[in-house]
Design a protein around this nucleic acid. Structure first.
Lengths: 206, 206
DNA sequence: GTAACAATTCTACAGGTGTGGATTTCAGGA
DNA sequence: TCCTGAAATCCACACCTGTAGAATTGTTAC
């Protein structure tokens, strides 16, 4: 309407561009919102506008900081521990009881910070890029390292079997929330899956 | 441009409405295309237009036959066997070797007609309705019936554990295609997972 | 002081989505 | 012969998506 120089809302005072509020922590707010939304809706289901609004921020910021939806997803899906040091430390105590230790570590990691795992699992089924991320994570970071420490035949197959049980646990307990597995305490899960994982690693497979 | 009565393509002869081609099998063509596309891209990723065009049909037909995207998904995700008769027949031979029989049945069913399973798994991670379908399938059709046949403590938990290993196998072998699990013959899978499932059903869980 | 830079907002675009409805042709029964 | 109903097409609507760029402001370095 009234040509006030460009037509930018000449009525309400509602925030105008610039740099007033929290400078610096905005990036973290976007990341946190992205983790939550990606974890809940997967890659395709999450929209930049929803993430931005959940972070109380303009969608443009996402682009400004992360460039791409892919870039944001990569940044948000960074798992909260370093496999390069976590896995050797699990292996350090030897092959005895390794199954239980792996299951316990997996459950703890998921329950401490579920977002990256859920995001990867949810994304993996429909978005090829995040399927690749999960596959690579399972293959290289986990299977590779674990397989190298086994002095049994078919180490890669053994590690992949472990992966299958852990992925299945994640799906059924945390994503589908099938009862009673979803509500049972962590110790029960460890007791139930530990021997399975142990057998996949060191037992007879025939 | 030229007002020829309504503007319906006044140049090319390209099919006009009516009822010329295959009357009757069109519905099946849409269903087949829907199974394929849902299986490959999940519920959200699949679009009605893509499905229709894969079936060589107008998108309106989908609406005509199935009403809704949900309706199409329901019709396409009907699993190709009846749990009410399949599971009792697995149980009939007794608890001995039940683990191997279940794994073999699951692998055969998946490899005979992968579409419904893949569609459900892919959909379940991002679409709440199909997560509900899968959860209900796992819970009622499988867990319920199997649990009823067990004379051990915690039958429901046992059945859910079986479900977790089977879902994990589906994810890792068929969806993520993690090697070498993805390429290994069915017999190897049966030999590896059979004892796991057997232990979940009848073994000690502590 | 002023110039450069980063943070932030808005508006716009081109494309894809599910759904709704009007329209047309054909087949079969009264 | 006429009429009903099913099969099939097209067009349109709102809406949401990711991306792009322009505009504005504050902060910092010279």
């Amino acid at each position: 309407m009234s040509p006030t120089g460009g037509g930018r809302g000449a009525g309400r005072p509602a925030r105008r561009p610039g740099r007033p509020p929290g400078s610096g922590n905005t990036r973290e707010a976007v990341l946190a919102a992205a983790r939550a939304v990606f974890a809940e809706r997967g890659f395709d289901g999450a929209s930049l506008r929803v993430i931005a609004s959940a972070a109380g921020v303009d969608p443009g910021m996402v682009r400004h900081f992360f460039g791409d939806k892919e870039g944001l997803f990569r940044a948000a899906s960074r798992i909260p521990f370093d496999p390069a040091e976590a896995i050797p430390s699990l292996l350090a105590a030897g092959l005895d009881g390794l199954g239980e230790r792996i299951v316990r570590f997996f459950v703890s990691a998921w329950e401490a910070g579920p977002a990256p795992f859920a995001a990867m699992l949810r994304g993996a089924t429909s978005h090829e890029r995040s399927a690749a991320m999960l596959r690579e994570f399972v293959t290289h970071a986990v299977v590779g390292r674990v397989a190298a420490a086994l002095d049994r035949p078919n180490p890669a197959l053994r590690a992949a079997l472990v992966g299958s049980q852990l992925v299945g646990l994640g799906m059924v307990r945390y994503i589908l929330r099938v009862e009673p597995l979803a509500s049972v305490p962590a110790d029960t899960v460890v007791a139930a899956l530990g021997p399975t994982v142990q057998r996949y690693l060191t037992g007879d497979l025939d």
